[in-house]
Amino acid sequence: MCELYELCGSSPELVFSPYCWRVRLALAHKGLDFVSRPVRFTDKEALAFSGQKLVPVLRDDATTVHDSLAIFHYLDERYPESSLLGGALGESRLRLLDQFIAQDLRPALVRLLVPRVLACIDPLDRDYFRQSREKSLGMSLEAFADRDAGQAQLARALQPLDAMLKGQPWLDGAVPAAADYLIGGFFFWAWTLGEQPWPEDSPTGDWFRRLLAFCEERQGPVQRATHR
């Protein structure tokens, strides 16, 4: 059985990394059972076997793979039924889509979710999280977090998703596949942290409800943080 090393908060049941959620959704797509191996931000030794320090890490018998897109590729090679990527062309398009996420969707959600991450992680991780993120951002978390700016940026990022989802149920067409999971991981990030910063009554809102139901049907209820 596969083992998925994924980021957790103060509770091991609260897994919230968007990149780990990509892999959870891909495993649901493939119909594969897995064992969750929750790790905290500072649990670097738990990942030493993978030769690097970041989640997600998938261990499948003697094979170890890290990075969500690399895991998608591995799952399609190892378990070719119910393709995620649809071949090399699909994989190339997915990498382009990942650039859109990095440029538009992720920055918007980071502004909205940084305070929630800080509140939900283990107290032992908070100094590491603050210091590493403030070094990257060049400012304090409090100065960076801006709900109004994040909400406005997210509204712009959702426009192409709404436009596509008006005419089809999934980003990949009639059935969900890699594009849905690549973007959906970031929606699960917000959802598991107790947020839903997108409109409920929108094509994107309807799509996320379908994706959540798809996931829970295969993997059980999704643990959410409570507001403090």
Rank of each mutant, 00 (worst) to 15 (best):
L27F: 08
V110M: 11
P115K: 05
D125R: 00
S92K: 15
E200C: 10
L161K: 05
R24H: 10
P197H: 09
F214I: 10
G90Q: 03
L105E: 04
G51W: 03
G173N: 14
A174G: 15
R147Q: 15
L14P: 00
D98R: 07
I121S: 03
Y5M: 01
E217Y: 09
H73D: 15
L4F: 01
L27R: 05
L27Q: 03
Q131C: 07
D61W: 09
F187A: 14
G194Y: 06
T63E: 11
D76Q: 06
E45W: 05
L54V: 12
L182S: 15
E91L: 15
G184I: 10
L27A: 07
L25F: 07
A145C: 13
A213K: 07
E216P: 05
W21T: 00
L75P: 00
R93Y: 02
P169N: 13
P176K: 03
L211M: 11
L158K: 02
R209Y: 05
K135Q: 12
L158G: 10
L193W: 04
L69S: 14
S140N: 12
A102S: 14
S140Y: 11
M1H: 03
P115R: 01
R210W: 09
L171W: 01
V39K: 01
L97V: 06
Q103L: 14
C215S: 13
G205K: 07
D127P: 02
A143H: 11
L75I: 10
S50R: 11
L124N: 11
T204L: 14
H66S: 15
M1E: 05
P115D: 04
G184S: 12
L97G: 04
E3C: 02
F34R: 02
S82F: 11
P203F: 08
L211G: 07
G31Q: 04
D76M: 10
K30T: 03
P18S: 07
D60R: 06
P12W: 12
Y74H: 08
A88M: 13
A179V: 03
L58W: 06
C8K: 05
G51N: 10
R37E: 09
E216S: 09
A46Q: 12
G150I: 03
S136E: 11
A143C: 12
A178R: 01
L54S: 07
L158I: 08
V65F: 02
F129N: 01
P115Q: 08
G87K: 14
S17F: 01
E91A: 15
R78P: 01
A102I: 06
G184L: 09
R24F: 02
R37M: 08
M139R: 15
Y79I: 04
P199W: 11
G167S: 15
L75H: 01
S50Y: 05
L97D: 01
L32M: 09
V175R: 15
V222A: 09
R37L: 03
C8P: 04
T204D: 07
S82H: 15
L109G: 00
W198S: 06
L182V: 13
R95F: 02
G51V: 12
L105Q: 08
F49S: 13
L47D: 00
L161C: 09
P169F: 11
L171R: 00
G150K: 04
Q159C: 10
V222H: 03
F49D: 12
K44W: 00
C120W: 00
P12I: 13
G90M: 05
A119Q: 09
L158C: 10
I71E: 02
R228M: 06
V114N: 02
P107W: 04
R224D: 07
V55R: 02
F188T: 03
P176L: 05
H66L: 10
